[in-house]
Amino acid sequence: MDNGVQSVDYFGQQMVNGITLGGVYALIALGYTLVYGVLQILNFAHGDVYMIGAFIGFFVMVGLGGPSHAVVPVAVMIFIMFAVSMLGSGLLGIVIEKFAYRPLRNSPRIAPLISALGVSLLLQNGALLLFSGSIRSYDTSSFVPITAGIHLGGVTIDGMRILVLVLALILMFGLSRWVNGTQVGRAMRAIAFDRDAAIMMGINVDRVIMWTFFVGSALAGAAGVMVGLVFLRVYSYMGFLAGLKGFTAAVVGGIGSIPGAMLGGVLLGIAESMTSAYLSPNFSDAITFLLLIAVMLIKPRGLLGRRAIVKV
């Protein structure tokens, strides 16, 4: 960074940061989009599921001896962190759906939203109660030496970022296979298209919605661990802003569209990283907000959103 803000290397470095962040946002956005596609509700508690996922990852790491005294090989440790966090977050998603959303399936639209705010308060303050307000650090520098990684000219992509990006790509690929290739995934698309018709075709809607929440929340959990690994900090209020960003990414890409969520996430990540680098770190959210406004003015349904057909 010595060679000045204007250099190509600096730009490349910011690009890498942006794409990494974008991968995380994309994973969160996918959860929003999946749930929205099926239920047309905004799952506000999603950001907090991500926070819980990050904490689960942290405690698994500590439980396995922490980065410096790991009792298992590092690769195994990271694998277990992801597996446990995704499973835990996924189950949490199922519980949230069962208690806070399922009873409200036929209520006015505002009801699940309020109940989601309630869940969000519960998770945040539950975490505050259990884990206290202090910021935990993943401290992963001893996992993978900072010097490891790829050097492209002056740009360094450290190992952790590569790992996170590859994992995010694998998860997204897996998701699209799940949605298009499995029975549950197809049922999910059928429900998103027309719930009543899907019920009449004998699709078990409850089961499909449960799976949707599980998969969406598991992705959020994975995103939580990734953020811990790359950006290190984990705390109980981290969910709100990340959830907001993920949600924005989903809207920018076209809510309900899976490729849209990925695109939106990456765009948002790059935009945020660029604005903090070149304009002002303090106003990066404000600039992201302007981006959202711009997209909504030009393409009100998002970049990859479909035209909706009103049924009369």
């Binding site: 009873p103 309020i114 945040q124």
Partner: peptide, 26 residues
């Protein structure tokens, strides 16, 4: 525990109240 943490407890209570209210009397 809770009696020591009035502000967190308050938020927990409000959160629970919102969910219970929505589920029972939307």
């Amino acid at each position: 525990r809770l009696i020591q943490q009035p502000s967190t407890t308050r938020q927990l209570i409000i959160g629970t109240m919102l969910i219970v209210l929505m589920v029972t009397k939307p």
